[in-house]
């Protein structure tokens, strides 16, 4: 991009951008926004506030329900399980998604469209369908185990791959890969590959050009994708419920139990609050990290 620089060193193009961003909406345009805002307020914000208020109001103001969570090792364990599961799934997803997004940048247009289709088709497939498909593949007498035991006889007894943590992680990673790849690609494809070429001509081997130039330049994409994937994984309900074992109780499944089985709305609301705070803290940390590395962002 060609940049024009004003005398004082401020980027003229940035100035232009911020001017546009700060331009206020004209009054007439507000009417177009109102229906959506009203709908969200009535159908989402108000019920959410009512629900969350139940976590500290039960015939009077109380911290009883939060105390219950903090006092019980089994509830704290659920928080820990949720967090650990989300971090593991995020790590697995990012490790798999990053090379694919890089390959998409280098592939020709035909190959890129083909791979995009492979990424987007599962993205459109219902999560329940995907869970049952994984069950069929991973269970004791599923595709993988039958192949390993009966067909090639590599192992004597089937491997436990589902109704446990690995099962949940496989399902979650599969679910999270398409959005992760799409975000990484959409941000990283702006990187000028000639810059990597410049690094090569200046004496960097392919691996060092990647490490010193491409990787740092792709960090904004990595950060954005990691955060989105992490936030999504914190709230997973269907996958842990279907592919996990009894031990793999997450906050989302616990909330479901409170509302539908125990019918303890106050306690359910308190757990919802914990999950919401965890997610908001995650987002806060993310924006903090983003603002710190502004200097390293590509102009």
């Amino acid at each position: 991009m060609k940049m024009t620089v004003a005398e004082n060193g401020v980027l003229a193009s940035n100035k232009f951008k911020s001017k546009r961003a700060h331009r206020s909406l004209r009054p007439s345009a507000m009417w177009l926004v109102m229906p959506g805002v009203v709908f969200l307020a009535v159908a989402f914000v108000v019920p959410l506030l009512i629900l969350l208020s139940q976590s500290f109001y039960d015939e009077g103001f109380t911290f009883r329900y939060f105390a219950m969570i903090l006092a019980s090792p089994s509830y704290l364990a659920v928080v820990w399980i949720t967090l650990r599961m989300a971090v593991l799934a995020t790590a697995a997803t990012m490790l798999l998604a990053y090379p694919v997004s890089c390959y998409l940048m280098l592939a020709g247009p035909a190959m890129r469209s083909f791979i995009m289709a492979l990424i987007i088709i599962p993205f459109w497939t219902n999560i329940l369908v995907r869970c049952y498909a994984w069950m069929a593949i991973l269970q004791r007498r599923g595709l993988v185990n039958t192949f390993l035991t009966d067909q090639i006889g590599l192992i004597d007894r089937p491997i436990e791959m589902v109704y446990n943590l690995p099962g949940v992680l496989i399902g979650m990673t599969h679910y999270l890969l398409p959005p992760a790849i799409l975000i990484l690609y959409s941000i990283n494809h702006n990187i000028d590959l000639r810059i990597v070429g410049a690094a090569r001509s200046l004496g960097a081997s392919p691996s060092r050009a990647f490490r010193h130039v491409f990787l740092p330049l792709s960090m904004p994409g990595i950060r954005a994708a990691t955060m989105l994937v992490l936030i999504l994984s914190l709230g997973f309900f269907v996958i842990p419920a279907l592919l996990g074992g009894l031990k793999d109780m997450t906050l989302a499944t616990l909330i479901n139990v409170q509302f539908t089985e125990s019918v303890d709305w106050h306690f359910g609301a308190a757990i919802s609050m914990v999950l919401l705070v965890m997610t908001l803290v995650g987002i806060g940390v993310y924006y903090q990290a983003l603002s710190k590395t502004k200097g390293g962002k590509q102009p």
Binding site: R194, I195, A198, R200, S201, L202, A204, A209, P216, Q298
Partner: peptide, 19 residues
């Protein structure tokens, strides 16, 4: 390979490392 040729290259778009 390019990195073993000991050539200094200047591009039209400068190709400076922005970070």
């Amino acid at each position: 390979a390019p990195h073993k040729r000991n050539i200094g290259l200047v591009y039209q778009n400068y190709a400076l490392f922005p970070h």
